[in-house]
Design a protein around this nucleic acid. Structure first.
Lengths: 108, 108
DNA sequence: CCGTATCCCGCTTGATACTG
DNA sequence: CAGTATCAAGCGGGATACGG
């Protein structure tokens, strides 16, 4: 028995998950973690000009709470915190890559 | 000479394009146009419970203005309007598909 | 270095009513 | 059928200052 593709239920099911990516900066943040890259808080501040500390912290917290990004704290002075994609977050890379390719087509 | 992948410039370049997809309902709408599907205004109202007429019209107008969705009006009574993806919009399908697959992994 | 705590504004969203 | 008009509200987001 083949599994039929039901766009309606798929869209309503995917709806909840898509909301995890909503937010002014989340996809931008994820692009900087693309491909297994690891970033520190201060790295993001340099990589994403225009983002406020509040928004950076908030979006990172939400991504962490949603299981997309993991946060590693090194108990030392000065503090050091690293962010990377979780396993599930890594699974987003094909989508990120596809969006990147799509974006490039705009220029043409 | 190989073309080096520069994540920083890529992210800042892609940033503008990503904003075209922002909005509470846009991705949901696009999922219902996935794969060349054609929908009428009233179809969306049925397919997306909870969306208001205002938001539906607004998001469709923005997607149209951004060249992602095309709108075809049939001059007849009662009116008939069809929405479909533009050529560039179709190029989003791999990304939509990748997001769909990503969303499904959540269940597991 | 890595954040929190406030304050505040405005845009996005929503509800409702109306129209060609 | 396929929208617009209008009004109101809430929260996302920005600026600034402060803390472990």
């Amino acid at each position: 028995m083949s599994k039929l593709y039901n766009p309606e239920s798929a869209a309503t099911g995917v709806e909840h998950v898509l909301r995890l990516l909503e937010g002014r900066w989340k996809l931008i943040i994820l692009f900087h973690l693309f491909d297994g890259k690891i970033q520190r808080y201060s790295d993001f501040e340099k990589l994403i000009p225009g983002i406020s500390q509040k928004m950076l912290a908030q979006q990172l917290r939400q991504l962490e709470a949603d299981g997309i990004v993991s946060r590693t704290v090194y108990p030392q002075v000065p503090p050091k915190v690293e962010y990377r994609l979780t396993e599930w977050g890594q699974a987003l890379c094909p989508a990120l890559d596809a969006m990147l390719k799509w974006a490039e087509k705009r220029e043409v």
